[in-house]
Simulated assay, not measured.
Amino acid sequence: MEEQDRRRWSQRQRFEFIEWKLIWEGLLNRSDLEETFGISTPQASLDLRMYREVAGENIVYDSSEKAYVPSPKVAPKFLRVSADRLLLQLRAWLTEALQREDLWFKTIPPVDMAPDITRNVNPNCLRELLGAIRARKGLQIHYQSLTNTRWRTIAPHALAFDGSRWHVRAWACDREEFRDFVISRIDEIGETCEVGYDPQDDVEWSTRATLKLRSHPRLGEAQKRAIDRDYAMTSGYREIEVRLSMVYYFIRRMNLDLVDLPPERVQLWVENLSEIEEAVQAAKDESKARVAERRHRSVLTQSRSK
């Protein structure tokens, strides 16, 4: 049964590949299946025949091209057509996060991107952080911020990417609050230790809010229409769900906090910014209240046990 399921999955992947070639390259040869999946000519022919049995309306043989091409009304049944996914794969290939063989293009189109300066993350540091997250342990780190460099004890419980840097979300034992620490600024890892904390107390992390975005109000009508199209807005708005702990990074990355910039530079506007800011502060207050309550219960338990 397991072997049969594996064969079905492999064939479904090849059906997805057939539709990918039809949609994104507009051309498919039997040899494409053979070379990509390392299958025999009879197996490739069988795949094409079976695909035509279940989705023949999507594919047409073009004798002049000596290849299969998409029909005018092609509607994929196995492929989730996503421009975002395809462009993300191309970007991953440019940054060497994806290998050439993982792209289904026969010939990759000319593509490039502006240089992306990545922050250095030490793999041993990341390994220690992941271990502390799994074990629910505290960890001593030598942390270099923009104001000082010192040893700190943190209890990490999550990782977060702000668009340019990776952070570890952690309970900061010295400040007694949940904070973000830029991983690339951790230059040394010390010992693990026991820390009495609960990730559920990090209300900013566990709570999501919805940013209501619109084109900048000082833009002209034609400019607003362009922005609406860029961001696929509905009735002039685009709603973005984000963790409260990530709101600051999103707003800063999109320049939404720089009110003095020209509207053509900012382009977007957060309609419910004050509401979001209140939610962030309320989450901080709730975290403090939860921590205080947890400690109060712990003290009561200890006093009763004496």
Rank of each mutant, 00 (worst) to 15 (best):
E128N: 11
S64K: 13
P123S: 07
S64F: 07
I133W: 11
A232Y: 04
D162E: 02
T36L: 07
E275C: 04
A172S: 13
V195G: 01
E16Q: 09
D112C: 07
M254P: 14
L129F: 04
T301H: 13
L27P: 02
A97G: 12
E275N: 09
Q43S: 12
D228A: 09
L211N: 08
P263R: 03
Y51G: 05
S10G: 10
N29A: 12
Y61Q: 00
V182H: 01
R175V: 05
E96P: 10
L87C: 03
D174T: 00
R304I: 00
L86A: 02
A279E: 07
V81F: 05
F37N: 04
L273E: 15
F37D: 01
E16W: 10
Y68N: 08
I240L: 15
A170N: 08
M1T: 08
V121G: 14
K106Y: 09
Q267K: 06
R6P: 11
I117H: 15
R119A: 14
F178M: 06
R100G: 03
I59S: 07
F250E: 06
A289H: 04
E34Y: 03
A67N: 01
G220Q: 07
E278H: 11
D198P: 01
E96K: 09
E25P: 12
L213V: 00
D174N: 11
Y237V: 07
W269T: 03
R91V: 08
V259T: 08
Y231G: 11
T153P: 00
V74Y: 06
Y197I: 09
E34W: 02
W20M: 01
K284I: 12
K284R: 11
D230F: 05
L129E: 10
Q281T: 04
A158M: 10
L219W: 00
P217F: 06
R243I: 12
D202N: 11
R14S: 04
R14N: 05
R127A: 10
R7A: 05
V291Q: 05
A132G: 10
I227N: 14
P217V: 14
D257S: 11
E53Y: 09
R294I: 11
D32I: 12
M254W: 06
R127Y: 13
L48T: 01
G138Y: 13
R185W: 06
Q302C: 10
A92W: 03
Q302G: 10
G190I: 11
F78S: 02
A114S: 15
W166N: 07
F78P: 04
M1R: 04
N124M: 04
E188R: 06
S305F: 08
A67V: 03
E277Q: 15
V299K: 14
K224Q: 07
R119Q: 08
Y68F: 10
G131N: 06
V247F: 00
N148T: 02
V203N: 00
P263N: 08
R14F: 00
Q144H: 01
L256A: 02
S45Q: 06
F161I: 00
K224I: 10
I39M: 14
E221P: 15
T118K: 13
S298P: 00
W104P: 13
R304P: 08
S235G: 02
E286Y: 01
T36N: 07
M50P: 04
S303M: 09
T210D: 13
A83Q: 09
V121R: 12
K77A: 09
R185Y: 12
